[in-house]
Design a binder for these strands. Sequence first.
DNA 1: TGACATAAGTATCGCGCGGAGACTAAATCG
DNA 2: CGATTTAGTCTCCGCGCGATACTTATGTCA
Lengths: 235, 235
Amino acid sequence: MRDRVPASPSLSTRATSRRPPHSIDVILFTPRGTHLAALCVRAADPQAREPWQLPTDWVAGDETLDATARRVARSAAGVDPTWLEQVGAFADGLRHPTDAVLSVAFVAVVPASVLELATTDAAWFSVGEPPSLPPRQRSMLDAALEALRTRMDYAPIAFKLLPPMFTLSELQQMYEILLGRRLHKASFRRALQGAVLVEPTEEWRSEGRGRPAQFYRFAPRKRRTGRRAVRFDLL
Amino acid sequence: MRDRVPASPSLSTRATSRRPPHSIDVILFTPRGTHLAALCVRAADPQAREPWQLPTDWVAGDETLDATARRVARSAAGVDPTWLEQVGAFADGLRHPTDAVLSVAFVAVVPASVLELATTDAAWFSVGEPPSLPPRQRSMLDAALEALRTRMDYAPIAFKLLPPMFTLSELQQMYEILLGRRLHKASFRRALQGAVLVEPTEEWRSEGRGRPAQFYRFAPRKRRTGRRAVRFDLL
DNA sequence: TGACATAAGTATCGCGCGGAGACTAAATCG
DNA sequence: CGATTTAGTCTCCGCGCGATACTTATGTCA
């Protein structure tokens, strides 16, 4: 589990002679209800200023950064993330639980179905009300959330959070949870139709009160890269 | 294994025989003619497999990553970059000139006016025909170019490459050089008008054959963030 | 001095995307 | 049956953007 994080008393002493070279921190998101939640773990050091922190560890052996991040996420959540990407390196003077000189942040997601956590050493916090975190990890969380939302246009993140078959309403709800804002139904489906990303199946959802919904599956087709116009979105 | 030698003779040498914890590599771009060029320096090790490499060094003292990157860029090009941002951390198994276990890549730009390089230890290479680089730095270069072009929509990079006063044609040409593709004149000016980014001055360009062009200056005004529609640009 | 070249800047048209809202369709519940 | 709920579609309208042509203002040269 998290025994890899050194809970040694040497952590609390600021005058460490051998600070770890660099840590890998993972911001793991999951849809919880209608909002996003991020995974935090209890601070390794009981004397820590903040009771919670982000899952972190350092690279072991010949691991790639991605592999390390996956291992950290799996160790904290119990399952492998279904999507993971690097956010960037953080090495300002802000405090980090491991006192690493440099930390590489990763953003990852897991489906909601695996919400159950085995231990009480980890908990989901709504992104709207995150716990108090070590300063560097706080800035990492903000950057990860922004990275998640900007990369949604280019990576099928929402699809990785859904089962192989899903309704278009479920897909739209997932987009709304991830983006944190409501979307227009007709526009969403029109754009989805334009991009050839999904194909209908013969299955229909029978449960529920209203009209049955058709199930779709993720089946992207190659299409020529549409050169967008210049966007002046500065400020 | 090759000896570790600082990237540039002018850079401070840190006397340590161990492998450096992490290097800071800078991909410095400049407009050259109608195309982009990236700055490379001669390999520190004459026995190196590739004769050229990207400017690199490691963090000195309490420097932030940004400050280190600025110093590396200044040391290689002779001037401070006018824009600089982090690209990400690279720590795959690919070879790096310093044998650093981890490298943080930065993308930066300098105006063309300072094209003259003091030494022959550095040279500009067109991004279309880059020299053979150490594998990790090669992937850094690709990532930096992509990062530059995607961030142009959100950062005033083109403006940082122009003098305080410029014509709209010069601005468009700068966008075309950075993006590597032609733009439509009317659309460009319409979009620029929509975003309130520039304001006209009383100055006019007198030189040249054709009709004089009015000078503008960069004067962005705050405007509410336009929520874009969802884009399905995957694949 | 007038014709031409060159470059800046504008006007008009048409298409397609995207938001608002209303509408239809198919199920459950009372 | 009629009300409710959810799915899915339709029409309208505005605007962004590309294409094209046009106007304006200078320099060049016969």
